[in-house]
Design a protein around this nucleic acid. Structure first.
Lengths: 136, 136
DNA sequence: CTTGACCTTACCATGATGGGAAGGTCTATC
DNA sequence: GATAGACCTTCCCATCATGGTAAGGTCAAG
């Protein structure tokens, strides 16, 4: 299987497959006489694993750790759970930040009449010119 | 005021101030004979505006638009509200995505016993080997 | 006049991905 | 067997916003 077919089969672009190889996330595959990369179903399986992990928001580094644990027959699933739990915490922190931003913005939009008057609470807040909405 | 003082006063690093100048977000300030950038309270005000906008998650491009509206005396606040509303939508989409990830991961962590047995639902899900948790 | 804190520009790095160029290879069709 | 087109290879560049570092100039205090 060439890299294009492996890309189609795994959902990981050929570009990314080469990149993952370059940074050491996956092992260099065998090559044909004409230097083409050759992949089998095992490699496609690994690529799918990586893709799913990335989809769930794990970084390459985290994915690398999960991949190692997946391939380690003597692994402890506790380690996996720890990585996942930490990732959940990070995601929840991020969500809280975004929700805070949304809350502030919604309040501002609500105060902003949206007509043509030059007074705009959103801009005023951004400029920090008064403190009406600042404490929000 | 030198760039360092402007940085302290605005909360934007000197590095970023130069960058914002380079990409045209802010205007080049006057310089001293020895080529030092000189800032006044107006520039600091602009920098604070930018900082607040960035804190709220607006991109540089959006910040640039908001800044232009802020400095445009004939602006319509409706435009501002539109930018903010679109930004809220984008943030909410992002939040939903993250929450979906968290949901999947929590389910997996819940299923994963965290002991030393080599069976780990999280890795199984990532690998896509069975469909027990896949439809989640 | 030296020291140290500041400033200047210029370049490199991040993380994960896409784009493109220049050149080699394979396959199908004529 | 030649040619076209689809594929592969490596290498370099761009993103986005930010940080770092290095080499050199400037300023103020002691």
């Amino acid at each position: 299987m060439n890299i294009g077919q492996a890309a189609d089969a795994s959902g990981v672009s050929a570009k990314m497959i080469r990149y993952y190889e370059q940074i050491g996330l996956i092992r260099p595959p065998t090559r044909t006489d004409s230097n083409y990369r050759v992949y089998g179903s095992d490699e496609v399986h690994v690529l799918r694993f990586i893709r799913r992990s990335r989809t769930l928001g794990f970084s390459i580094e985290e994915t690398s750790a999960l991949l190692a644990l997946w391939q380690d027959k003597t692994r402890a699933s506790g380690e996996v759970r720890e990585i996942a739990s930490e990732h959940i915490s990070a995601l929840e922190t991020k969500i809280a930040e975004l929700e805070s931003m949304v809350g502030t913005l919604k309040h501002l939009v609500h105060c902003c009449q949206g007509d043509n008057r030059p007074d705009c609470p959103i801009l005023d807040d951004l400029a920090g010119t008064h403190s009406k909405t600042k404490g929000h």
